[in-house]
Design a binder for these strands. Structure first.
Lengths: 204, 204
DNA sequence: GCTGGAACTTTCCGGAATTGCAAATTTTCC
DNA sequence: GGAAAATTTGCAATTCCGGAAAGTTCCAGC
């Protein structure tokens, strides 16, 4: 017992994670190449080299498979924030971590633009996306609670608002033809949340 | 032509709306009485007195039927804000409308508590709920844009944050044993958004 | 008010999607 | 090396879904 109480995954779990990732990746690729309709348990399983029954053991639907990779990267956001020095004020952590992390998570602008386009015509895919966001929001709320000591309403409001900002910034950046880099857009949104949401006087 | 250019729905459309509402209501009732598993196109259609095929003409799934009533009340939120005097500053409108409207929309505390309990063990139902919220968020963003003249990022951030506040307040109110009335909780959340989200210094 | 046409509901039905199960295969541990 | 545990696979049973056609209800024009 050289390794002590190490909880390394072990080959079995690593393989599971690998096929899961391979299935999700394949599902995404097929969607990019031939559209959402072409993604099926059969097509995905064939590309990975497993049976379609195995696909169903991992995912309940094509949408779940397509989202899964994204989902896992999303969830990493909370850990990123948690890794910041505990003495750092929360907003500083958020403003430091999110704008940079956002880019890595969503990948290229083309990817996210395609995703948004597909999502707008597939409520099911949108729903799975929202589920992933919701889970991330829960994880982020935990971190906020740890950092601030607040235990009740505030962490969820903060987490929800921050993810709304993230979603808004990403959507705008991907769908509008702007030169501003994503991190800058997101930083602006977060600063708004920190300082109080600006809403101009009513237009006369 | 006494009534002028009235666009009253007409009997046919009223009947459609009625069966839709009846189906949704029946779906909700069955869920309350016998649990989510007991809600099926057959059981719902039978209670209303239509064929199960008709149920499928209206809703694609039990979850959609269960959520539908709530959905429609949600969507009314945006109109409520729009109806406020145009000269009123946006935050005043929001703080005035939402806390009171929230209560009407979600019904009794028991209803929402049950809903949350069921949702936690049914991802599909949660997903449909999130879809409804998302649509409401879009509608609210339109109103914000009309009111403030802002056209790009801000309306979506504001709308998303406000709905996060709504969801947080409702969830807390329904799941924790607090004496504070829902409108007060929600007002607090909205004031936080207006003034800047408070996050205490890190706990030493 | 009555009649033709449009819209909605119902019945029937076939194919696709989903789930459960047990055998076969692979991994782990001793 | 071999037993135990976990995973993959194929198959069967079942449910789900939506199209087509017939029947029923509403609306508009005469």
């Amino acid at each position: 017992m050289v390794g002590g109480v190490s909880d390394e995954p072990g080959l079995r779990d690593r393989k599971k994670a690998a096929t899961r990732a391979a299935l999700s990746h394949a599902a995404w690729s097929i969607m990019v190449e031939d559209g959402l309709a072409a993604v099926s348990p059969e097509s995905v399983a064939e590309r990975v080299g497993v049976s379609s029954r195995t696909f169903r053991n991992y995912f309940a639907s094509r949408e779940e498979a397509i989202i899964d990779g994204w989902s896992r990267r999303h969830h990493a956001l909370a850990d990123r924030v948690r890794e910041r020095p505990p003495a750092e004020p929360l907003w500083d952590s958020l403003v430091r971590v999110l704008p940079e992390a956002a880019l890595e998570i969503i990948g290229s602008r083309d990817d996210i633009a395609l995703m948004i386009r597909v999502i707008t015509e597939s409520p099911t895919l949108l729903a799975h996306n929202l589920l992933a966001l919701q889970r991330t929001s829960g994880l982020l709320a935990e971190v906020v609670a740890e950092r601030t000591g607040e235990r009740r309403l505030v962490p969820h409001v903060v987490a929800g608002a921050v993810l709304a900002a993230l979603a808004s910034a990403v959507t705008y950046w991907a769908t509008h033809d702007t030169d501003e880099p994503l991190p800058d857009l997101l930083r602006q949104c977060l600063e708004h949340l920190r300082a109080g949401l600006p809403v101009g006087p009513p237009t006369p």
